[in-house]
Design a protein around this nucleic acid. Structure first.
Lengths: 235, 235
DNA sequence: ACAGTATTTATCCAACGGGTTAATTTCCGA
DNA sequence: TCGGAAATTAACCCGTTGGATAAATACTGT
C-alpha cells in the first residue's frame, strides 16, 4: 500500500512544543481576545492536543498571562537595544518615535494583547510578578534625553518623561490599533504604504515641533525618514 | 397578608424596554467585549427576559451593532454642539482637546466599544449603513480652524486636519483606554484627579506648542484649564 | 366586550467549550 | 534491556450559552 499512513511514531520535543503552543496562543488571543480565544483552536494551530496546553502551561488564563508576559519581555528587550544616549536630543526623540512606530507595525499582536488586557482592567498584569519588575528603563532614558536637550538649547522646556513617553506611544498605538474603524470612518486605507509614511512624518513633526519650538513645517514632508532623521527634515 | 406579592400584572413598555436593553447591552459589551458578553446577563441587567432581546433587537451581533451605532451617534451629536468657528484658533484647538478628553472620561464604554470593534477588524462597522454616512464634522471644523490660524499668524504652518484629529484623539484615547496597564507599569494611578489634570495640560501644551511654535513651557502648569484655555496658559 | 395583535414569561435544547481522566507511546538511566 | 518517568493521544464530562418554542398576559380598535 502506497498510503503514507500518518506519521508513524511521534517524537518528543517539550521545549519546542511549549514554544509552538505559546506562539499559537499569542496569535489566537490577539485575534479574538481572551474570551473569544478557543483552546481547541490554539491546540490545533500548535499542532498539538488540547491536553498539551494544560500539561505544559496550565489553564487558559495561565496561558494568556504567559503570552502577555512574553509580549512585554520582547518589546522591553528591543527597547534596551536602542541607545539614545549618544544621539543629539532631537534625533534621539525622532529615533524613539520611529522605533515605537515600527515596532507596533511589526508586532500587531502586541497592540491587540494590550487592548485585551486593558479590557480586563489589567487584572492579570497585576498578578504578574515578572512584568511589574520590568519598569521600563525608557523613562530614565527619555528623562536624560530631555534634560540634555534643554541644556543644549535644542528643547525649549523640560517635559515630564512619562507624559512624553505615553504621548509618543499614543500617537502610534491609537492610529494602528484603531486603523480598522478609522479607515471605515474616513473612507481611506490608513495602512497603505503612503498613509503609513505620512503618519510617521506627522508624528515626528508634531513632537519635535513642540519640543524644539521650530515650525511644524520645518520637519518637511519627506517620506520614510527611517533612522537618519534630523531635526531639519522628518515629518 | 401584608406580603407585597410581586408586582401583580406587568405593564407594557416597548420603547422603554428597548432602551433598557440597549443600555444594558452597552455596559455588558463594554465590560466584556463581544465574545465575553453574555446575553443572559444583558437581559437580567435590563430587567427583562432573554427572549426580549431577540424580540426587540435581534441576535447578539445585531444587538452589538446597534449599540455601536448608538455610541457613534451620541458622540457625533455632541461634536456638532461644539462651535469652534467663533473662537481664536489656539482657543479652538484647546477646546477641541478639552472636549475630546472629557467626552472620553464621561463615556468610558465608548473607548471599550471601539477597541472591541477594532479587534473584530471593523467587521460590523463595515456592514453598517448608518455609521458610514456619519462623517465626523470635526475634520472640516479643524480644517477651517487651521486655515484661519495660519492666516492670522497664530499657527506656523498648515497641518492635515485628519492627522491632527487622529492625533488629538490618540493622545486622549490611549491614555484612558490603557490606563489600567499603564498604571501598573508606571506604578502610579493615572486616573486620579491630579493625574488627569496633568494629562489634559500636557496634551494641550503639546499640540499648541507644535502648532503655534511657542514654547511648550508657555502653556504653564495650571491645573484644570477647563474651557477658558488660551494659548498663554494650559499645560 | 371581544377578537386580534403586541409584548412578555417560562422552559427547553443542542452545540460548544474548558477542563479532566485514563490509556499509550517515547525516552532515559541503571 | 527494561522499568519507570515524561510526553502525547484519545475520549469523555458537564456546566454554559446562544437561540428557539410555545404559552400567557396586556393592550387596541371596533
Amino acid at each position: 500500500m502506497a498510503k503514507t499512513k500518518r506519521v508513524l511514531k511521534w517524537q518528543r520535543d517539550p521545549e519546542g512544543m511549549r514554544l509552538r503552543i505559546l506562539e499559537a496562543a499569542k496569535a489566537e488571543f490577539a485575534a479574538h481576545g481572551l474570551a473569544g480565544a478557543r483552546v481547541d483552536s490554539i491546540a490545533k494551530k500548535a499542532g498539538a492536543n488540547k491536553r498539551m496546553l494544560y500539561y505544559h502551561v496550565g489553564n487558559k488564563e495561565d496561558l494568556y498571562l504567559e503570552v502577555l508576559e512574553g509580549a512585554y519581555e520582547k518589546i522591553r528587550a528591543e527597547e534596551r537595544g536602542l541607545d539614545l544616549e549618544h544621539l543629539e536630543p532631537p534625533e534621539a526623540i525622532a529615533r524613539l518615535i520611529d522605533f515605537t512606530w515600527n515596532y507596533f507595525i511589526r508586532n500587531p499582536e502586541f497592540l491587540a494583547l494590550l487592548n485585551t488586557e486593558n479590557l480586563a482592567k489589567a487584572r492579570h498584569l497585576k498578578r504578574s510578578t515578572k512584568v511589574k519588575s520590568m519598569h521600563s528603563p525608557f523613562v530614565e532614558m527619555i528623562r536624560t534625553v530631555v534634560t540634555r536637550g534643554v541644556e543644549s538649547g535644542d528643547f525649549r522646556a523640560a517635559v515630564d518623561p512619562v507624559q512624553l513617553y505615553i504621548s509618543i506611544a499614543a500617537l502610534a498605538f491609537f492610529y494602528l490599533s484603531n486603523s480598522a474603524t478609522l479607515s471605515v470612518i474616513f473612507g481611506r486605507d490608513l495602512l497603505s504604504k503612503d498613509a503609513r509614511d505620512e503618519r510617521l512624518s506627522h508624528m515626528i513633526a508634531l513632537v519635535l515641533a513642540a519640543l524644539t519650538g521650530k515650525s511644524i513645517a520645518t520637519f518637511g514632508k519627506s517620506k520614510a525618514p527611517k533612522l537618519q532623521v534630523t531635526a531639519q527634515q522628518a515629518v
